[in-house]
């Protein structure tokens, strides 16, 4: 479990978030600019917020009061960015080797993940020789091969067509990940398909949280239900 509580002030918005990420799929839903990505950056260590506390199990990642800040290199958190993050100068195989280069123990072998995600045969291609969906799948495989303590995904499906999106969601469900997975999205349908817990975020704050029932209201608004 990851406990996150932080404040980050930007010129136009103050982000004040407190949430705990349990094992399974946690979704943060909210419009662009509401502070979703800041949560990912804070948990992964890419951002040191103004104030806050981030704990992963018993390990303190961040405690601004005690001036503790663990850099991303020491957190072992997998992150999948919106527009992948594959290293363009490396082939798929080399990207995977890069991802596991610092890992002592792997839960999933990279070859096994490539096969499961339908990427077999693409190992010798460079990222710019892959489709958008393939790139995103490779990014997920890299993050998982890294044996992360948690997986954070920043709008991972936003640039994908529906079929590819559903395919990746199915793969993720099948894997039975035993870690907290945080997916940041603005699409309630993605949450409906995958989420165990949902956090609704508006203007820098979590305004509602709970199980999928939280989505009911949102979907009603979107699709005109009652």
């Amino acid at each position: 479990m990851i406990e996150v509580s932080f404040t980050q002030r930007y010129p136009k918005i103050k982000i004040e978030v407190s949430l705990s990420l349990q094992r399974g799929f946690n979704f943060i839903l909210g419009p662009s600019g509401c502070g979703k990505t800041t949560v990912i950056k804070t948990v992964s260590g890419l951002l040191k917020p103004d104030e806050g506390l981030v704990k992963c199990c018993d390990e303190v990642f961040l405690d601004t009061r005690k001036d503790i800040f663990l850099p991303p290199q020491r957190r072992r958190i997998g992150v999948v960015f919106q527009e992948h993050g594959l290293l363009p100068h490396l082939k798929v195989r080399e990207n995977l080797s890069f991802a596991v280069g610092k890992v002592r123990q792997v839960r999933f072998r990279p070859e096994e993940l490539l096969e499961r995600f339908g990427l077999k045969g693409l190992e010798n291609r460079y990222p710019d020789e892959l489709s958008g969906g393939q790139k995103q799948r490779v990014a997920v495989v890299m993050a998982l091969a890294f044996n992360p303590r948690a997986l954070l995904m920043d709008e991972p499906f936003s640039s994908l067509d529906v079929d590819t999106k559903l395919e990746i969601i199915e793969f993720l469900k099948e894997l039975e990940l035993n870690i907290p997975v945080l997916v940041v999205s603005h699409d309630p349908v993605e949450a409906l398909l995958l989420a165990d817990r949902v956090f609704i975020m508006r203007e820098g704050r979590i305004i509602r949280q709970g199980g999928k029932e939280v989505l009911g209201e949102l979907l009603d608004k979107l699709y005109g239900g009652k």
Binding site: Q73, R75, G78, V79, G85, L86, M142
Partner: peptide, 13 residues
């Protein structure tokens, strides 16, 4: 920046 972040996140100094 994403490439640099990717490297940090995978544990590289």
């Amino acid at each position: 920046r994403r490439y640099i972040y990717t490297s940090y996140l995978f544990g590289y100094s």
